[in-house]
Simulated scan of single mutants.
Amino acid sequence: MTTAGIPIHLVLDTGVGDRAHAEEQLQYLIDELSQLDVASIERPTAPAPPSGARGPGALELSALVIGLGGSGALLPVLVGLVQDWLARRRTGTIRIRIGDDEIELTASSDEMRQRALEEFLRRHQE
């Protein structure tokens, strides 16, 4: 499966539970992602909450949709940036979803997680 034209969904969980902190961290991530040659970076609009609900959760507020454009060649670069970004913060997780396939990256890394990431990237190469 290739990623050409397929949106990449990122969801940041800072692990803190503070919406202001999550928004600040998401903006830092957007700033770094903006340095890549991606076609688009968008904040998805959350559906209206059911009557009586307090509003969208922190995870919904910390979501992005990335358009890579006509080529999936940027996917490994995007994932590398996300891994580096998490490692520098030493906390939190980012879920990356392409279609129905999803992987969760955390600030810590180990050999098993690296193999899972390599398999995820392999499934989405052209």
Rank of each mutant, 00 (worst) to 15 (best):
T45D: 10
G80L: 04
A107I: 07
L26E: 00
G17W: 07
H21K: 08
E60Q: 13
L29Y: 06
R123F: 05
W85S: 01
S108F: 11
E111Y: 02
I103L: 13
S109R: 14
H21L: 07
S34M: 03
E119V: 11
E118S: 13
A107Y: 06
S108W: 10
Q35W: 11
I8C: 14
S40M: 11
R88L: 12
A116W: 08
I41F: 06
I94N: 04
L86M: 00
M112D: 15
P50R: 15
E23V: 10
V79L: 14
D18P: 08
I96F: 00
T45W: 00
T93A: 14
R115F: 01
A46Y: 02
S71W: 00
L33H: 04
D84Q: 13
T14W: 11
S71P: 05
V38E: 01
H21S: 08
M112I: 14
S51R: 15
D13G: 12
I96W: 01
A73F: 07
D13V: 00
L64V: 10
V38H: 00
I96D: 03
V79A: 15
G67Q: 08
A58K: 10
V77P: 01
R115S: 02
T2H: 13
T2Q: 09
F120N: 10
D31Q: 13
L33F: 02
L61I: 03
P47I: 12
E42N: 14
A63L: 03
G5R: 03
Y28F: 09
A22G: 11
E102F: 06
E42K: 15
I98K: 01
G57Y: 05
I30L: 08
L105E: 09
R97K: 07
T14A: 09
E102H: 03
Y28I: 04
G92I: 05
P50Y: 07
P76D: 03
L64A: 07
R90F: 02
G5E: 09
I103T: 01
T106H: 15
Q35S: 13
D101S: 05
V82W: 07
L78R: 05
A4N: 11
E104L: 15
G55F: 06
A53G: 08
Y28E: 14
T14F: 06
P49L: 11
L75Q: 02
L61M: 14
P47N: 03
L86Y: 00
L78K: 04
R95W: 05
L86Q: 02
F120K: 11
M112V: 14
R54G: 12
R123H: 14
L26D: 01
R88V: 09
G52D: 06
I96Y: 00
Y28W: 11
L26P: 02
L117H: 06
P50L: 14
I98A: 03
